[in-house]
Design a protein around this nucleic acid. Structure first.
Lengths: 338, 338
DNA sequence: TTGTAGGCGTTATCAA
DNA sequence: TTGATAACGCCTACAA
């Protein structure tokens, strides 16, 4: 076993109280004593036991993130970039990051939240892929447990969040497509209970309506936020008698799949077909062809979330509780191919 | 605060012992009592406090991974895929994954190891980017703390690891290049203390020697395993009077940078210049042009490591302590462009 | 089959 | 400035 505070105290003929306080930097320990303690503790290789400290102080200095995915995929670039931001900013605040993965709405997910939140394994949680009505938000809000979210549910609670106006910016994408002359614009979406789906789909319809274009349910397909889903959906869309000239995808992963399908079916994306995504995932500017998208700074958003969470945990007031992030319309060759 | 075992016991007029045992599935509790306890505990929303349990049982059910990077980048595809494997397999064994990031050899790194290992925040550690002599390996081995590594240091300890024969497979890359007629083959490497650098560089020289090609120090540059490093190195290599016709890169990220630099300088990679990488990072088959590389299953490797670590932690014997993984030579257009 | 009690290693209260 | 001592919540001999 490791060396305990008791052993350090015994060696110095001091009480554990004094040792503890010296090490924690209280000012009611004689400077001389403090130096001696610090030195000896270091020499003996003393490191405070985290479990004991945690039990006593009622906090863990850990924040948690449970990746909401059917099949656990940290390697999805969105999650990778998001997790990166969480990890980096957490370190900066003296927190460690505990991660896991669970299918949304599953038993596993509930148990994970219980184990972490209720059992105090973490001091705060980060959520994304929020649902219109989200049990996680309800659970955490009711438990009065610190948490932050990317996007907000409709549940009426006060909690810090970062948002991007998906409706407004998706409309921008449609505007862009229309300005290029497109009239038949398809939409590949996601599960209807997801906040981003609702928002972006609304933006899609706003866009059509704004230009007097008819809304055609035959041009709307539900994907699953993976490239496979995008692939299958695009395959279907491009096989109908009167195929669309443009495909607007709810996110970049979906768009990648659509690009892939289109290429395989002999279309030249950027010329006879336009494809757009939403997210601005790093690295996706190198797809073939480069993808037109709404670029939101995922990494920065994650860091911002952790900053807010840290403030929440330490009880500091937040200047802004609902942060609005402005993304950028990034026009690339998937819509304006040479 | 959350509800404690004591409150459950009080409510049922039972001792906490009985409650504890019933919940932990011991068989010396009357079936009737057990059912009642389980029901009430659930109703009251009781979840055992992790800190207390951890303090008592002397384990945390957490495994740790500290990302060895100068600047914290979880979004580097290698780390993303690696972390993905760790997280997924950890879940499967009932472990959570604690992640952080620290510059190799830094104070921060040492402190992180102390905090996690010595202070028992984790039950085991996963290491990669191993050095020829690696203080982490020495530290953990001497502390008799469970850990596993991707690649092995030369330190003489017994510990589970997964390896890929970098020397052998890098030679395969060179063989491939030579078979295409290349005579001036450059090498962009990494810091010399890294095991992968030594191995792969040895393979590079083996390759040259095997074909009677001279080793030219002017064609060797040290990169840093980032695409920026690869970019700068390739820029220099392609600016010398008698530039190489092929560039072999120590890893895929470096190769991406090299591709980028070459393209910007007007070379057509695959035709007037060949570029190869090493790692087989998922998604890099879509670079422009697709990258010839040694494809090692990073995700699978990570999972295997966690399996071994889990066995180590629970004290189960390991059938194999040094696992050798066979990667694949993946020939793509960066060497055989159309 | 159930209960009592000690201790895991800290921190914090209070007294000296 | 320092020291006894009581929690924190749980598990587990051991006793009943």
């Amino acid at each position: 076993m490791s060396v305990t505070i008791r052993e350090v105290a015994k060696k110095l003929n001091l009480s554990i109280t004094t040792v503890s306080r010296a090490l924690d930097g209280y000012d009611d320990v004689a400077e001389e004593t403090r130096q001696l303690i610090i030195l000896t503790a270091h020499e003996m290789g003393y490191v405070p036991n985290q479990a004991a400290r945690q039990l006593r102080r009622q906090r863990s200095d850990v924040i948690g993130y449970i990746l909401p995915a059917e099949t656990p995929r940290f390697s999805d670039p969105f999650f990778a970039e998001f997790t990166a931001g969480l990890g980096d900013e957490a370190s900066a605040h003296g927190f460690d990051l505990l991660v896991s993965t669970a299918p949304p709405g599953s038993q596993v997910e509930q148990q994970a939240y219980e184990r972490w939140v209720h059992a105090r394994k973490v001091d705060g949680m980060v959520l994304n892929r929020i649902h219109l009505r989200d049990w996680r938000v309800q659970y955490l809000a009711q438990a009065q447990f610190p948490f932050v979210t990317l996007e907000r549910s409709l549940d009426p609670y006060e909690y810090p969040s970062v948002e991007v106006n998906g409706r407004y910016w998706f409309k921008m994408l449609v505007d862009h497509l229309v300005s290029l002359g497109h009239q038949r614009i398809a939409y590949i979406g996601a599960a209807p209970e997801l906040k981003i789906q609702t928002d972006r789909f609304d933006g899609y319809r706003d866009g059509l309506q704004g230009h007097g274009l008819a809304f055609d349910t035959g041009l709307v397909i539900e994907g699953d936020l993976t490239s496979e889903g995008g692939y299958r959906a695009a395959e279907r869309l491009l096989s109908i008698p009167d195929p669309p000239t443009a495909i607007a995808c709810v996110d970049d992963m979906t768009a990648i799949g659509a690009l892939h399908a289109a290429r395989e079916m002999g279309w030249t994306v950027g010329l006879d077909l336009a494809v757009v995504g939403f997210d601005g995932i790093e690295g996706f500017e190198h797809t073939q062809p480069p993808l037109t998208t709404i670029n939101q700074p995922v990494y920065q958003i994650a860091r911002r979330l952790v900053q807010m969470l840290a403030a929440r945990i330490s009880g500091e007031p937040l200047e802004e509780i609902r942060v609005q992030i402005e993304p950028l319309l990034e026009i690339r060759q998937s819509t304006v191919g040479t």
